[in-house]
Computed example of a mutant assay.
Amino acid sequence: MPESAESPRGALSRQRIIRAAVELIERDGSDAVSMRRVAAALGVGTMSLYNHVPNKAALLDGVAEFIMADMAFAADPDAAWQDQTRALARTFRDIALRYPRSVLVVTTRQPRSTVGLQPVEIALAAVRKAGFDDRVAVRLVRTFVGFILGSLIHQVSVAEAGTAGLDAVDKAALVAALEQAQYTNVRDLLPVLAEHDHDGDFEFGLELLIGAMQSLPRDG
């Protein structure tokens, strides 16, 4: 049952509106978000939202800030840059798994507050402290974000496929088709391809990237 604006949880506020939008995005996707639907979820009139959030764009900006602010970055600034990188990447992945659909909203909107830019500041500080020049520092941060989002999309797609994935296909027919197409490597590795160790894959990729970083030139 929708909660009223005067429910025990408190009066209508920007924070409650943003949280309702996040819940709606996680359930139905960002395309489903509208001021009307958020108001309905809160059990209030649509016009009452405009006292706190002027429009849908501001609502989505608020969602992006909410997600970024929820990242509890615990990287020790005195730790080696490799350890800082691991901590930051794992934290970003954790929040991405908690809010997979909302994180995609974050990536499509420019942060408009210091709250939204805090994780970027921490990540850039870590790579610059390691001695990478400015352009490389920015590219490294973008590369890690791309890697984390890619692993998230893969994990979510596997989960949503469920029994419709590789495990559910007719193995004999698939092997025959692969042999006919001379896809011998795919045929030989079908059992491995059917496995999904998301945590293991992420850690493997993370260490691969850190190893690549170590080979890049640095100042000092």
Score class of each variant (00 low, 15 high):
Trp81Arg: 01
Gln84Ser: 00
Val115Lys: 11
Met1Glu: 09
Arg19Thr: 12
Arg109Asn: 02
Leu117Gln: 11
Ala181Ser: 11
Leu60Tyr: 06
Asp188Leu: 08
Ile153Arg: 04
Arg98Glu: 15
Asp61Glu: 12
Gly211Thr: 07
Arg93Cys: 05
Phe132Ser: 04
Met1Arg: 11
Asp31Ser: 14
Thr91Gly: 13
Leu209Cys: 09
Glu6Asp: 14
His154Ile: 11
Glu160Thr: 13
Arg9Thr: 12
Ala173Glu: 15
Ala39Val: 05
Pro8Phe: 00
Val44Ile: 12
Met47His: 10
Leu174Ser: 06
Ala123Ile: 09
Thr85Arg: 01
Asp167Pro: 00
Arg139Ile: 02
Asp70Ser: 15
Thr108Glu: 14
Arg142Pro: 00
Pro77Thr: 06
Val186Asp: 00
Val175Asp: 09
Ala126Ser: 15
Leu97Ala: 08
Gly146Asp: 14
Leu208Thr: 13
Val141Asn: 10
Leu206Pro: 11
Gly116Ser: 07
Ile18Lys: 06
Val138Ser: 09
Leu60Trp: 05
Ala21Phe: 05
Asp134His: 04
Val38Phe: 09
Met1Trp: 03
Ala11Tyr: 08
Ala164Asn: 14
Thr184Lys: 02
Asp219Met: 11
Ala176Met: 03
Ser34Pro: 08
Gln84Tyr: 02
Phe92Gly: 12
His198Asn: 05
Arg139Glu: 14
Glu203His: 11
Gln110Phe: 08
Gly62Asn: 03
Glu65Arg: 06
Ala89Lys: 02
Arg90Ala: 01
Leu209Ser: 07
His196Asn: 13
Ala177Tyr: 00
Ala130Cys: 07
Ala64His: 07
Lys56Cys: 01
Asp94Asn: 07
Thr46Trp: 08
Leu24Tyr: 06
Phe132Thr: 04
Thr163Phe: 03
Val136His: 02
Asp219Lys: 13
Ala69Leu: 00
Val156Ala: 13
Ala41Ile: 06
Leu152Gly: 01
Ala172Asp: 10
Pro54Tyr: 03
Ile210Asp: 08
Val22Lys: 09
Ser4Thr: 15
Gln214His: 10
Pro111His: 14
Leu206Trp: 05
Asp70Lys: 01
Pro111Phe: 13
Arg139Thr: 06
